[in-house]
Design a protein around this nucleic acid. Structure first.
Length: 646
RNA sequence: GCCGGUGUAGCUCAGUUGGCCAGAGCAGCUGAUUUGUAAUCAGCAGGCCGGGGGUUCGAAUCCCUCCACCGGCUCCA
């Protein structure tokens, strides 16, 4: 007998070789129906894999990541079997579970493709195979046998994967006619899979290396119930409605023009107003934190970026240099503001007493992003960073870093970004040529960030290899409507640019010292931030940011004059108010302005004109009754104060 | 940049196997109506069918090429 410990610390005795599924069944038959995989000590097991020693276990259902993972991973194998039947000669790469579903990378052979018209055939084949209730059978094999097996089938990608594995740790899974190299765990059998949707196909380089062959990646998702698939598809539709590219067009916030050039956004009046308010908001915060505004040009001599190291790193892939009539002169479109700000630091000698200095600029930069990368406002070729550079003494670094974290958190709170992740990006220690600067400087910079985060009690994830080439960083990421993650705010510690620009201050010892630099942009870029704000709010911006706060709707043209009076009064009270004096019925005006996501609609007719009042309708909330213009102005002013009070 | 898809009026979309002057709804303009809480009615105008080249008696429709957009991959100072 062996002793099994459950998550509540209760223990049960079972015969050696008992399986997770049998234990679940013993606890409750209902549990046995829902369970998908099991953790045994710290290893994930199939439900049907025997447990031979004392262990603590945890059974995973659909609600656990581990349960979903086993479900989707098994689905990937099932899809692979379907593809194997439909596309003879197909070779398989990798096929993992992902956050929402799974994919499989396959090589269909030269010239063969899968398009979305094939999806239904694949789906049908998967469901056909699922209904055979084929068991997922695990077996352990030696490295040699594994290579022989896949080598014999011309599965070159699998052979490559196995070559990188250690002997003794290799397992196969087989269901029906499909055998795969796989760590598991998997479902007991294919009948768990009740609904499938093939979502998309895309190219994907083998092992993520753009120099290697591009495989076909097929994305899909499966569910244990048909109704869950339907719900998921509804969710996807809802997410699409929040897409900032769609809302940006509908709400007339921004546009693109082929003539101007791809990735070069045009801010329309309403979008520009929104952005301006965000900028003013941040300027106010920065003033309070001791930042000083600076302004620098949009181009700079090539030498400037050679000095900073940006030219060596990105020069070849950038917008090409601007040549002038004078011999040998070359200018670059500004890809970064920091070199300019370093030069501002250098305009005069700095004393240790002057530090820190904090230079802030909404600096527009241009980067030649790869054409396939451009995406709405989130990835563009010309954008404005809410940039600032703090030059401080080494002993001030942590305190300054913490202050920047405070600014970021304050902004997120005011704008109600309550779900974000903070990521510490460190250099890849095995890839030194990607970075500039000494090991010592990197270590100092990395530990400064980690310490500041610890001191702040900020929950972070640490990712190696994601640092900028000149220093490590702390990034704040949020998700867009479709679940894609975007980096917003960033804070970076940099010992390297001060060295390259030979920045100095005079210390209390009357000697020259090198300052440390912090690069920071709490929004990241105005473009990306507005994009994410649009998706986050579904276009229903906070009252203090939204372009039009109220629209006056006269019942008929007879009241246009009074509507003008109301609008003038409110605009004079700093409430952004428009008039809808179209010759339309009131129902129509309400509908159109609701769709434009105007926070307050003010209906005025005979009654209101007589009593000098407005009938208030709140967005999404209907009729709020009537009140005097003054009372309404007061209400809006108070609401704005409440939203920006922190 | 790479793989796959898409491109018809300002917007959303129809356009059968190539065949008469390329259609609809919304938006726009003109007029009627003077409206009380999510779409009033009528008329008018609007398109080099993404650009270029080709096949054909004939191309929005077939082929080539370029451009832009969409989904991924790679990249992201």
């Amino acid at each position: 007998m062996i002793k099994i410990t459950l998550p509540d610390n209760s223990t049960r005795e079972y015969p050696k070789g008992i399986t997770g599924l049998e234990i679940a069944n013993n606890i409750s038959p209902r549990l046995a129906k829902e369970v998908l995989s099991v953790t045994v000590n710290n290893d994930l097991f199939d439900l049907t894999r025997p447990i031979n020693n004392d262990a603590s276990i945890k059974l995973h259902k659909w609600d656990d990541e581990e349960g979903k993972h086993a479900f989707w991973h098994s689905s990937a194998h099932l899809m692979a079997e379907a593809l194997q039947e439909l596309y003879p000669g197909i070779k398989f790469g990798i096929g993992p579970a992902i956050e929402n579903g799974f994919y499989y990378d396959v090589d269909l052979g030269d010239g063969k493709t899968i398009t979305d018209t094939d999806f239904i055939t694949i789906e049908n084949k998967i469901m056909e195979l699922a209904s055979t209730k084929a068991e997922y059978q695990r077996s352990e094999v030696s490295k040699k046998d594994a290579i022989d097996f896949f080598g014999g089938r011309q599965e070159t990608y699998k052979v490559e994967l196995i070559n990188d594995l250690e002997d003794g740790s290799i397992s196969f899974y087989k269901q029906g006619n499909f055998t795969d190299l796989c760590r598991g765990p998997h479902l007991p059998n294919t009948s768990f899979i009740k609904a499938v949707k093939i979502l998309s196909v895309a190219g994907a380089y083998w092992r993520g290396d753009e120099k290697r062959k591009q495989l076909t990646r097929v994305y899909g998702i499966t569910f244990p119930k048909k109704s869950m698939l339907d719900e998921y598809l509804v969710l996807l539709e809802e997410a699409k409605k929040r897409d900032h590219r769609k809302l940006g067009k509908e709400l007339e916030l921004f546009a693109f023009s082929q003539r101007v050039g791809q990735g070069l956004p045009l801010w329309l009046p309403k979008g520009a107003m929104l952005r301006e308010r965000l900028e003013n908001f941040l300027k106010r915060v920065q003033r309070a934190y001791g930042y000083e505004p600076v302004i620098t040009p949009h181009i700079g001599q090539k030498e400037l970026y050679v000095t900073s190291g940006h030219y060596a790193k990105y020069g070849a892939d950038s917008f090409q240099p601007i040549h002038t009539p004078a011999e040998g002169e070359e200018f670059l479109l500004k890809p970064m503001n920091c070199p300019h700000h370093c030069e501002i630091f250098k305009v005069k000698p700095r004393s240790y007493k002057d530090l820190p200095v904090r230079f802030a600029e909404f600096g527009t930069v241009y980067r030649y992003e790869q054409s396939g990368e451009l995406h709405g406002l989130t990835r563009v070729r010309g954008f404005t960073q809410d940039d600032a550079h703090i030059f401080c003494r080494p002993d001030q670094l942590k305190e300054e870093f913490i202050k920047v974290i405070d600014i970021v958190l304050y902004i997120f709170k005011t704008l109600e970004f309550n779900e974000f992740t903070a990521q510490i990006s460190l250099r890849d220690p095995n890839n030194n040529e990607k970075y500039i600067g000494s090991d010592e400087n990197w270590e100092k910079a990395e530990s400064a960030i980690i310490e500041a985060c610890n001191e702040k009690g900020l929950e972070t994830v640490v990712v190696t290899g994601e640092a900028a080439f000149y220093g490590p960083k702390l990034d704040f990421m949020v998700r867009d409507a479709i679940g894609r993650k975007w980096q917003l705010g960033t804070i970076q510690v940099d010992y390297n640019l001060p060295e390259r620009f030979e920045l100095e201050y005079i210390g209390s010892d009357d000697k020259r010292h090198r300052p440390v630099m912090i690069h920071r942009a709490p929004f990241g870029s105005m473009e990306r931030f507005v994009a994410v704000l649009i998706e986050h709010t579904g276009g229903k911006f906070p009252l203090w940011l939204t372009p039009d706060q109220a629209v006056v709707l006269p019942i008929s043209e007879k009241y246009n004059e009074f509507a003008q009076k109301v609008s003038d009064f409110l605009n004079n009270s700093d409430i952004r108010t428009a008039i809808d004096d179209r010759n339309e019925k009131i129902g129509r005006k309400i509908r159109d302005n609701e769709l434009k996501r105007i926070p307050y609609l003010l209906i005025v007719g005979e009654k209101e004109m007589e009593s000098n009042s407005v009938s208030v309708r709140k967005q999404g909330d209907g009729d709020k009754g009537s009140m005097s213009m003054e009372a309404f102005a007061d209400l809006v002013t108070k609401e704005v104060e409440e939203l920006t009070k922190y």
